[in-house]
């Protein structure tokens, strides 16, 4: 029997992954304590940010990862967190003020060297490319021969999980960018909603294909042994459902959040304010 502590220890210890998480949380805390109180996010937002980060950490560096490697449906749950839920929470917590504060700490002489990062970021955040990358990566890693290799090769497996997490962060940050498109050059609300709809459809199609396929689509779990004896059809059915339903729901939820923001912004629109002044 395993003790509770063993469930919290990584199955496949990855020093780089742990370092990345320590750095993210460390810089976040450093920014929080260093910034003026007026700009500091409230307790709720800090909690949501940490929850998002810790959820992603938990599926990568605890016993959860073991089950993700040997059960298809747990693997789908892992990607649901890495590519959807974790990044959604992180983006909704709006860490922008903390990041802006941290950016101001970087010596001016060093900033030009960071410019290439900005270029890559801006290319990746083109809405068409971002949406394509978002569902394209899901299709890539779930393409049966590639999925087979990714589950067999330790290196590929890590590339897969990290690429899902980073792409999830990019996409959901584009969608939930807290800056208003009216006052800044952030992506317009209509385009954001369109992106959410565009990425939902291919995910639903893929999920449905997996759910309704009669044969085994992903036999690597057959070949390499399952974590516990579960009928392969059940495993595949659950995995297909996890690919299909929750991502579709998250897209709809995202559209509702954006719609609310759009309505709120519309009320506060400068032109409206002027119109009010004129009529008063």
């Amino acid at each position: 029997m395993m003790s509770a502590a063993e469930y919290l220890l990584p199955y496949d210890f990855s020093p780089l992954t742990i370092l990345a998480y320590v750095l993210v949380l460390g810089f976040y805390a450093y920014g929080l304590f260093g910034m003026p109180e007026s700009e500091r996010p409230g307790g709720g937002r800090i909690f949501v940010f940490c929850l998002g980060v810790l959820l992603c950490y938990a599926v990568m560096q605890t016993r959860f990862d073991y089950y993700s490697q040997y059960m298809f449906f747990v693997h789908r749950g892992q990607h649901l967190i890495l590519h959807h839920l974790g990044p959604i929470l992180i983006a909704l917590s709006n860490p922008l003020p903390v990041m802006q504060h941290l950016y101001r700490q970087i010596p001016k002489a060093l900033r030009p060297y960071l410019a290439p990062v900005g270029w890559i970021y801006r290319v990746l955040q083109q809405p068409a490319l971002a949406s394509f990358l978002f569902f394209g990566l899901i299709y890539l890693w779930l393409w049966p021969p590639i999925h087979f290799d990714a589950m067999l090769s330790r290196d590929l497996y890590w590339v897969m999980n990290w690429s899902m997490l980073l792409d999830g962060l990019l996409f959901w940050w584009l969608i939930f960018d807290p800056r208003s498109p009216i006052t800044t050059n952030a992506l317009g609300y209509g385009k954001r909603m369109l992106c959410l709809a565009v990425v939902a459809i291919p995910q639903m199609i893929l999920g449905a294909i997996i759910v309704f396929s009669r044969g085994m689509v992903y036999d690597v779990y057959e070949v390499c042994g399952r974590a516990w004896p579960m009928p392969p059809e059940t495993d595949q059915l659950l995995g297909g459902l996890l690919t299909w339903i929750p991502p579709a729901m998250m897209s709809i939820l995202g559209i509702l959040i954006i719609l609310r923001r759009a309505m709120r912004d519309d009320v506060n629109r400068p032109t409206h304010a002027r119109a009010k002044e004129v009529t008063q």
Binding site: D12, Y70, M151, L152, Y157, R226
Partner: peptide, 11 residues
């Protein structure tokens, strides 16, 4: 078994 990315379990 971990090295070759497989596993085993007991009933």
């Amino acid at each position: 078994s971990k090295r070759y990315r497989t596993t085993f379990g007991y009933e």
